[in-house]
Design a protein around this nucleic acid. Sequence first.
DNA 1: GAATTAACTGAATCACGGTTCAGTAGTGGT
DNA 2: ACCACTACTGAACCGTGATTCAGTTAATTC
Lengths: 199, 199
Amino acid sequence: MSRKRASVRREEILAATIEEIEATGLRTLRVADVAKRLGLSPSLVIYHFVTKEALVAAAFAHAGENDLYRARRIAATGRPAREKLDEVIAWYMPTGSTRSWKIWIDGWSAGLFDTELKATFAALDKEWKAILASLIEAGRDAGEFAPGADSAQTIATRILAYLDGLAIQAMFHPGDVSRQVMGEWAGAFVARELEPAES
Amino acid sequence: MSRKRASVRREEILAATIEEIEATGLRTLRVADVAKRLGLSPSLVIYHFVTKEALVAAAFAHAGENDLYRARRIAATGRPAREKLDEVIAWYMPTGSTRSWKIWIDGWSAGLFDTELKATFAALDKEWKAILASLIEAGRDAGEFAPGADSAQTIATRILAYLDGLAIQAMFHPGDVSRQVMGEWAGAFVARELEPAES
DNA sequence: GAATTAACTGAATCACGGTTCAGTAGTGGT
DNA sequence: ACCACTACTGAACCGTGATTCAGTTAATTC
């Protein structure tokens, strides 16, 4: 049983937890399954995280931070705002390889009745909006986007709302909204929001 | 213990189940709590529904049908298509008194890993899209809406996606998307989809 | 108004899975 | 080499909550 430093093992366990939620859902998540995935004893998982609930909370926070990290790296590139915006959006969507929407739908459902989780999601959402808003402002300053009536923050909120909705449709009704369609519609929405007066 | 015909009792239990999910969430739903809500024994609930899982499935189907029924009644009115469309949309949103979004978010999460539930939701969604599409077509025929490039079905899908997304935002970030804002944004979206060439 | 059926209950069962705990064994420091 | 600390395990415990079942009583039928 190769021992590892606590910080390393904790990361492994968090990743395994997300994988397990991804694969079978939060409602049937068992500590034992997370442990088995790594060939460890259930006790160890509890040893590191004290309680299953805390494990789940930590796992969601971890996964969310990971996604944000990637998005921030895209935003930090030295390219036109529109390109970066498109790429960040593409990453937010289910297409983004690692980023699965199953866990977030599960997370929302749990967050409805769990204050800590709800706070975690609120914080993550705020960050996503900040990233988008900052790209929108950059684009406006650079003259790429028309200076609209609404604040960048507001537009970011609307875009994320639409993306969430599209993701759900794509998840449950892939016949109505394929991945490609989802991308096209998202692109059209962004265009309408940011380049209104093209006439 | 006033006895009731099975059909009546079943309806009561279904309603109580939805209320319980609404109040405390699917993940902590106990058969005993549903029973207590009606002053009945847990055994009776099982007597009527055989299994908790079946109870939950039936409850979601029941709630969904209820909502659809109301929507269809609105659509059957003899008013302009736009008015009816707006009202149906208002009813779809969390504002619609009974219609709570908590249960649907919970439902999605459960549906991800439950084939029967997923099928139920697919059927409900299909119905909603049909209602919207038929209103859109009626409005086009009546000259209320411009005849766009996309089919009524497609536009219905996009509208529902946006509504879902807005509902989630309103649920989790009411500071960013109040009920009123939600209504305004939804209205603007519909307008853009249906009355594009107003120039 | 007896007989049959259908609604209903309470107490027991039973599996499941999170958590505890006492102990084992790597690991890093001196 | 020894010590202290930390990662780790296996077996037991224990609460929970769905389901079962044998029986009770209200409705319905004839």
